[in-house]
């Protein structure tokens, strides 16, 4: 935990000083720490571009990793992903609708919604699909995790089909927007977006420490957890709503960023074991560190252009995930 906190500080500083405008910012940062004046240009880059990007990276990384750990605990499956609650598919449909159908809105409305239209639609889409899925899976006050899992696949296919129709209707520039949104990026981070996403993500993260003991008990199964005095249905409600809020806000703010939610909890279980009391806070830290690192790679690898961060996390995360899987077959009990 200490190690990870230190690592987060290091990557944060590195992230602030990495990017298209070069090394002079390191100087500016040291000047700032020593209380000296820095130029307006450096101030703008540091406070209006790099800092919001850094904070968004920390928030999104923590949100995705912690949500992944919570979902895996809830579904009792190390391969569960935050996307399972239907948030990803719904958010994708929302974003695509906004990009493609947005141009049909009256110009005045387009102007007033501005660039908030896509994230807002993504958030609403994510929430709606989660609530629908949750309703489907809840029968007589009990939520079936298995029904939710399978229903999620059905709902994902349906939203995928609807998205497909919209994509078919899209013109070239919209297609480009769509592709970039789908791959995810922190480049669009602004203070405005942070003020919208941060409260949701923070609230959801603040709920998770109360889930740790319940998630540990749930590893035994739902009935044994109930016999240990865990209010199983209440903890399911809290888990699913927190994950929908955190992932919805994260996806709305930065598009679809994969693998953080699976790789981070896995890695931590290997390092510190599956106890959620330690897993959840460490997942927040490691998720933030890894996303910042991926963001730095995405900014520098084809500089001065930027690679979408989703490509970086998928290229590194995919093989890594396979490697974990093959190495730990016996412990994962697959």
């Amino acid at each position: 935990m200490l190690v990870l906190s230190g690592l987060l500080v290091l990557t944060s500083v590195a992230s602030l000083t990495t990017g298209a405008s070069g090394a002079s910012l390191w100087k500016a940062l040291t000047q700032l720490v020593q209380g000296e004046e820095i130029s307006l240009r450096e101030r703008v880059i540091l406070f209006d571009i790099r800092l919001p990007r850094l904070i968004m990276g920390i928030l999104v990384g923590a949100a995705l990793a912690v949500s992944g750990a919570v979902m895996q605990g809830l579904f009792r499956n190390p391969l569960a992903d935050p996307g399972l609650v239907g948030v990803g598919a719904g958010a994708g449909l929302g974003a695509i609708s906004a990009i493609v159908l947005g141009s049909f809105l009256p110009l005045g409305m387009q102007a007033s919604l501005g660039y908030f239209m896509v994230p807002a639609a993504a958030f609403v889409g994510g929430w709606v699909s989660t609530i629908v899925l949750y309703r489907i899976a809840t029968h007589r006050g009990r939520t079936s995790v298995a029904v939710m899992l399978l229903g999620g696949i059905a709902l994902g296919a349906l939203t995928g089909a609807l998205s497909g129709i919209l994509i078919y209707m899209a013109d070239d520039s919209q297609l480009r927007d769509l592709t970039f949104w789908g791959l995810g990026s922190l480049a669009g981070a602004t203070w405005d977006k942070i003020w919208l996403a941060a409260p949701l993500i923070m609230l959801a993260l603040a709920a998770t420490p109360f889930l740790a003991r319940s998630l540990n008990a749930l590893a035994l199964g739902e009935a044994p957890a109930a016999h240990l005095g865990i209010p199983v249905q209440r903890m399911k409600n809290i888990s699913i709503l927190s994950v929908a809020a955190a992932v919805g806000a994260a996806v709305a703010a930065s598009g679809g960023i994969g693998f953080i939610g699976i790789v981070v909890p896995h890695l931590l279980r290997l390092l510190i074991g599956p106890d959620h009391r330690f897993l959840l806070p460490n997942a927040a830290l490691l998720g933030a560190v890894l996303l910042l690192a991926a963001d730095m790679i995405s900014r520098t690898i084809i500089a001065p252009a930027e690679l979408p961060i989703g490509i970086v996390t998928a290229t590194l995360g995919g093989p890594f995930f396979l490697w974990i899987l093959l190495r730990n077959r016996s412990l994962l009990d697959l």
Binding site: G221, P224, L332
Partner: peptide, 13 residues
């Protein structure tokens, strides 16, 4: 306290 007939655990505890 209740002991079930069979118990599988989800994670490497």
């Amino acid at each position: 306290a209740v002991l079930p007939q069979a118990s599988r655990i989800a994670f490497p505890f």
